[in-house]
Design a protein around this nucleic acid. Structure first.
Length: 570
RNA sequence: CGGGGCGUAGCGCAGCCUGGUAGCGCGCCUGGUUUGGGACCAGGAUGUCGGAGGUUCGAAUCCUCUCGCCCCGACCA
């Protein structure tokens, strides 16, 4: 491709509304342009990177035995009614009506549709196992899209769905996809970790997320420093401390704490540590239950764990009015003593004695509080958010924490959808059997963004070669210099012949601008053709990754570059 | 949806408080000089000041409403 004929408008200045570096660079390098919140144009240069990732995904899916199909983006509501998700999915599901007033939605994921395909086409266990995938535009009406392609409302996703006769088969399919994902992200040149994850509203029994490690990641993950355990903090388990409940030593006593509401205020006022306080959260579920949860003062609630325990979809902090009504005090003074509410406590609380709680009365707390003696709870459970330093649930190690960008997610679904939609096959006994499913997603655009997040420097993008829009960039220092123009033209043609993806910067621009653009665009191999080198019948090769420069004899340059590309792709 | 902020040329911004000719830098177009790290000279184009209503002789500026966008929280590939 000749730069002079390409649509590639780079920006010198960073657009004001881009916050994270991948978004800024994608905008500056002319990869994407925003159309509306969370909705983007993929410009030619950006689309090439997207296609690269798609191609790697395709190859690995095919290698794993999956078959590509394409399902519609607009999905009739009927299918979503069958799975109950029309009601359950919430407002991320963009609903619309056609001219006949029939309900449709824009597909945010395709379990229903693919299950419909399979129930209508697969009759026998002999057609199994089956894995169908597509690469398609999804729409989720996110509450808050952000960070460019990192969290769009419209985004390109690879989604695969496996179908097996039984759970053992489904486990094998899951493992195959797991390995395929590893290969995909390795080939994309990413540093990542597979972690245990919550299944959210996709449902199913277990899942793993593939996290690209990056400071800007929206997810917190923990991993063990001595075993293989790694999990999203939402999911990370904590085993109950073995310590027995300590004996009370202090009397229950009410103290005045005027205006001291937060944990910091109360502990500061009483000159104690947050570890000596038990906070009482008054929460409401989407099922309109009100419950109280006890946590050690320095801990945070993991609402996903609580939801699982309460079998609800959402918990929110109760409003000031509700707190006032159930505790008889303004928020900040709630406590378990005498509280008439369902009362749950984190395991850690069971190991505490002589602690501090709110007194359910304005401006006062209790000190010297003890379980059993002063109040009882309905149950102890694992309810808090894991933090770095917590013990590993699998071994004697300690957990470390990281930030990650979720680029892939694999789920074991079981029979949730096959049961809802009635997807069965006949087994070897001639009996109907429900299919065991798995589903597997990769955010294509997000993977590109994550790769940039992980591979850039102050001057711009540093594309890993396998996903670079072009592999080689030829910079003609002065296109008015006929010898240089001719030499670069020859090199360009030779590289095209060799099947190399090459961009020839033949613009009549000052060299400085071209070099700046070259750095910004991040094409892995840059060849500079100028009079300086041509005197020695040579061109200069500079690697974007480390800036290393070498002179290449003109006659061998094409072959050498082609070999470099081949090696990088091997 | 709650909280915070912003909408003025393609991009980055000033002007608004205290109403009176819409500006700067970069980019873009034309011509010339220049050519190994964002050149220089000369000339040029570009705005319904997010939108609607109001106040006023007069509104980018003041008032009301509205739409959009960004950031922090709950959702997710």
């Amino acid at each position: 491709m000749r730069y002079s004929q390409y649509l590639l408008t780079t920006l010198k200045e960073t657009p004001a509304d881009a916050e994270i570096v991948s978004h800024q660079l994608m905008l500056r390098a002319g990869m994407i342009r925003k159309v509306a919140a969370g909705i983007y144009n993929y410009l030619p240069f950006g689309l090439r990177a997207v296609r690269k990732v798609e191609e790697i995904v395709r190859q690995e899916m095919e290698r794993a035995g999956a078959l590509e199909l394409l399902m519609p983006m607009v999905v009739p509501a009927e299918l979503w009614h069958e799975s109950q998700r029309w009601e359950e999915y919430g407002r991320e599901l963009l609903r619309l009506k056609d001219r006949k007033d029939t309900d449709f939605c824009l597909g945010p994921t395709h379990e229903e549709v693919v299950t419909d395909v399979v129930r209508n086409t697969v009759r026998s266990y002999r057609q199994l196992p089956l894995n169908l995938y597509q690469i398609q535009t999804k729409f989720r009406d996110e509450i808050r899209p952000r960070f460019g392609l990192m969290r769009g409302r419209e985004f390109i996703m690879k989604d695969a769905y496996s179908f097996d006769l039984d759970e053992a088969g489904a486990d094998i399919s899951y493992e195959k996809m797991f390995q395929a994902y590893r290969r995909i992200f390795e080939r994309c040149g990413l540093k990542f970790r597979a972690v245990e994850a919550d299944t959210g509203n996709i449902g199913g029994s277990s899942s793993h997320e593939f996290m690209v490690l990056a400071e800007s990641g929206e997810d917190a993950i923990v991993s063990c420093d001595s075993c293989e355990y790694a999990a999203n903090v939402e999911k990370a388990e904590l085993t109950a401390p073995a310590a027995a409940m300590p004996e009370p030593t202090a009397e229950l006593q009410r103290v005045a704490t005027p205006g001291q509401k937060t944990v910091e205020e109360v502990t500061g006022f009483l000159d104690v540590t947050p570890q000596q306080l038990v906070k009482t959260l008054i929460l409401q579920t989407d099922g309109d239950q009100t419950v109280a949860v006890l946590l050690r003062g320095d801990r945070e609630l993991n609402d996903i764990k609580l939801c699982r325990l309460l079998d609800c979809n959402e918990v929110t902090l109760a409003s000031e009015e509700v707190v006032q009504q159930v505790t008889g005090a303004p928020s900040g003074f709630a406590g378990p003593v005498g509280l008439k509410l369902r009362l749950l406590a984190d395991h850690e609380v069971a190991a505490m004695a002589d602690f501090i709680v709110g007194a359910n009365a304005a401006d006062s707390h209790y000190v010297g509080v003890n379980l059993q003696r002063d109040f009882t709870v309905e149950a102890f459970a694992d309810l808090r958010l894991t933090v770095a330093g917590d013990p590993c649930p699998r071994c004697a190690g300690q957990l470390e924490s990281w930030r990650g960008i979720e680029v892939g997610h694999v789920f074991k679904l079981g029979t949730k959808y096959s049961e809802a939609l009635g997807a069965t096959v006949l087994d070897d006994q001639g009996k109907d059997r429900l299919l065991f499913m798995g589903c597997y997603g990769i955010g294509i655009g997000r993977t590109v963004a994550a790769a940039i997040e992980q591979n850039h420097d102050d001057n711009g993008i540093v594309f890993p070669l396998p996903i670079a829009p072009f592999q080689v960039l030829i910079t003609v220092v002065n296109p008015k210099d006929d010898a240089a123009l001719q030499a670069s033209e020859n090199l360009y043609q030779a590289l095209l012949q060799a099947g190399i993806e090459v961009l020839l910067d033949d613009r009549d621009e000052r060299p400085g601008s071209k070099f700046k653009d070259a750095d910004l665009l991040g094409i892995p191999l840059r060849v500079t053709v100028g009079s300086r080198g041509l005197k020695e019948e040579a061109v200069e090769l500079q690697r974007r990754s480390d800036g290393a420069r070498t002179m290449l004899p003109l006659a061998e340059a094409a072959e050498y570059l082609a070999e470099q590309v081949r090696q990088a792709l091997a």
